[in-house]
Amino acid sequence: MGVPTTTHQYSYPELGSYDNLVLNEVPRAAPKPHEVLVRTRAVSLQFRDLLIANRQYPSPVVPNLVPCSDMAGEVIAVGEDVKTWKAGDRVCANFFLDKLNDEQTPETDASALGGAVHGVLTEYRTFPAHALVAIPSHLSYEEASTLPCAALTAYNALLCGYAPLKAGDTVVVQGTGGVSLFALQFAVASGATVIATSSSDDKLKAAKEHGAAHIINYRTTPDWDREVLEITGGVGADRVIEVAGNATLQRSINSVKLGGSIDIIGLLGGAGDVPPVDIIVPTIFRSLKIRGLYVGSVPQFHNMNKLIAANASTTRPIVDRVFPFAEAKAAFAYLASQAHVGKVVIKL
């Protein structure tokens, strides 16, 4: 059976809500000499996808956007100049198609899937050969689809920053979304101690099951920063993975030790809903390392997959729920409900 000449894909004729998603059948592109044609097997959703749908994302997106950045799939065909891939290979595409080293440039930003360029919520898509990485052999397509954004962001934060995480460090992870759970798993695999926060006891139970040494319900313990200091004997945590932005940044600053690190990777608490935090004084007088990061590079993806393969049980992606392709809107709605622990995936 030959490869179809068309592909079914979702797109936004107009942004404003994920309810605006429309499923269309369009001509399938053939791979150029340096490209690879991939059949999408699974797509995982990000909070970013909701921001884009609701016109809340700070960067411009292409018209009639095909959404989503994270996929896993099977190589169907390769361009004549491609030597690194063959039909049947299992691959993920990097979030930034052209980020081949750790330098962020306007050009790498312009290659962000599901925003600056069309995304992966489609049956077939071509990718530059250099943007693909092999899926660890023990992972399913659904599990592997969670790696390009959530996992790589967590890996970049903990192991590619000012100093790599080391055994014995204490890490605070906020919530039980994709990035936070991957950060928990990578920290545990590295021999660190994890303090997990959430507003749900059920979600905290899940964090405990996946290796968190300490848990804090920030609804019943709103001064969770004081609890972190109590747990660490007044010293503070070595690292904080900050996913909520200004809504929790002050408490993150309060809870980290002198000379500690805060990796800012999200704004789940809202981009402009809370006043900004003054970081200048504590950064100077407490010698804090505050780092913003935006996913990661292809080489980091390769290195992360080595960690995942070497720690298969500890780092196995946590997939909360899988939706069929025909129910993509329901998957977006479930993500928006924040009822999930781990990742929400669409299976093709």
Rank of each mutant, 00 (worst) to 15 (best):
T6D: 10
S17T: 15
V22L: 11
P27L: 11
A42W: 08
R48E: 08
D49M: 13
N54G: 04
N54H: 15
S59K: 02
S59I: 04
V62T: 12
P63M: 04
L65I: 11
V75C: 03
G79E: 02
G79H: 00
V82D: 01
K83N: 07
K83Q: 15
D98N: 15
K99A: 12
N101M: 10
E103K: 12
Q104H: 13
T105N: 02
P106W: 15
P106Q: 11
D109E: 12
G114P: 02
H118Y: 07
H118N: 07
V120I: 10
T122I: 09
F127V: 10
V133K: 00
I135L: 03
I135P: 02
H138P: 06
A144K: 10
S145D: 10
T146A: 01
Y155N: 10
A163C: 01
T176E: 03
G178A: 07
F182P: 07
Q185H: 13
G191Q: 14
T193N: 08
I195N: 02
A196P: 08
S199H: 07
S200V: 14
D202P: 06
K203I: 14
A213T: 06
A213K: 10
A213G: 01
R219H: 10
T220I: 11
T220L: 02
T221G: 01
W224Y: 12
R226N: 04
E227V: 12
V228P: 02
L229D: 07
L229P: 03
G233N: 06
G234L: 10
D238S: 05
R239V: 15
V243P: 00
A244C: 09
A247R: 10
R251T: 02
S252A: 09
S255E: 12
V256Q: 00
V256D: 00
G260S: 01
D273G: 01
V274G: 01
V274L: 04
V277G: 08
I279C: 06
I279Y: 02
I284V: 14
F285W: 11
V295R: 01
V295T: 11
S297F: 10
Q300S: 04
Q300D: 13
Q300E: 12
H302C: 03
M304V: 07
K306I: 14
A310V: 11
A312V: 13
R316D: 05
R316M: 03
V319P: 02
R321T: 15
R321L: 06
Y334C: 00
